[in-house]
């Protein structure tokens, strides 16, 4: 065996493969930054806004960026990537080697989680350096919120990958979940302007809970335990269902 173990090499190769998908990489790192810059340049957007529960406009957009990255990866990236790996027999070929195919899943998850962390760091850094947005005040709770958001949405994405019969279906179902989640979370327009019913539904959606918790912790509030609980719930339920139904071929 060479210096790098089978798993280490697999993680390295998966990273290279991820970086070769130039469009996806550009979208994941570029869209949130473009949003922050685009809105950040609007005059008056650097002031606390009444309609945004007192949050600074740019900080609000930066929070959206965090939610968007997680949602794109979880609901677009994961279902289509795993659906393709299964459909092309890549998982089947791997299961004939001494390496367990679960290692491939682990390697891919590591790459995706790292992508979220880098993208979130970039969002925070650009907002701070270019637009004087303060760093998330409750940094620990902010990290917990991002982590739980990733867990909840990745679990949902894995569940879609597990139950979808084909890679096309996986991509389609992922999209069907992506747009309502984005809407309910308040990505298209702030939840502050939604009806009470929609707000409540949004609170219980995984992306909605994640975005609320991220916004609260950025502004310096403790996150509502309800949101953390909702995200943990989604992570556990969808995660267990994904593990139960996942097929290697």
């Amino acid at each position: 065996m060479t210096a790098m173990t089978g798993f280490g090499k697999l993680a390295f190769v998966e990273t290279k493969l991820f970086l070769r998908e130039r469009v996806a990489v550009a979208a994941l790192f570029g869209i949130p930054i473009a949003l922050v810059v685009g809105f950040g340049l609007i005059p008056g957007f650097d002031k606390p806004s009444k309609t945004l529960s007192g949050q600074i406009g740019t900080e609000y957009i930066a929070s959206l960026g965090v939610a968007i990255v997680i949602a794109i990866l979880a609901l677009n990236g994961i279902p289509s990537a795993l659906g393709t790996y299964r459909e092309k027999g890549i998982l089947r070929r791997l299961s004939a080697t001494p390496l367990r195919p679960a290692m491939l899943l682990t390697a891919k998850l590591m790459v995706w989680v790292a992508t979220v962390l880098i993208s979130v760091t970039m969002i925070v850094a650009v907002s701070r350096l270019a637009f004087h947005v303060p760093l998330p005040v409750k940094l620990g709770w902010f990290a917990v919120s991002v982590f739980l958001g990733v867990a909840a949405l990745f679990a949902l994405g894995l569940f879609v990958a597990a139950v979808a019969p084909t890679s096309r279906a996986a991509t389609g179902i992922g999209m069907l979940l992506f747009f309502p989640n984005m809407f309910l979370a308040g990505v298209y327009f702030p939840t502050e302007e939604m009806s009470h019913t929609l707000q409540t539904i949004g609170d219980y959606s995984p992306l909605g809970a994640a975005l609320h918790a991220v916004r609260q912790t950025w502004m310096g509030q403790d996150p509502r335990m309800l949101y953390l609980g909702i995200m943990a719930g989604w992570a556990i339920v969808a995660g267990l269902a994904a593990a139960r139904f996942f097929r290697w071929e």
């Binding site: 065996m1 060479t2 790098m4 173990t5 089978g6 090499k9 697999l10 190769v13 290279k16 493969l17 070769r20 998908e21 790996y85 092309k88 027999g89 890549i90 089947r92 070929r93 080697t97 001494p98 390496l99």
Partner: peptide
């Protein structure tokens, strides 16, 4: 069974060799 389209020939062999 196929492999990833964007995997290079040497990378595939190097990767699979590392499993054994």
């Amino acid at each position: 069974t196929h492999l990833q389209d964007k995997l290079k020939v040497w990378e595939a062999l190097d990767l699979y060799a590392s499993f054994y």
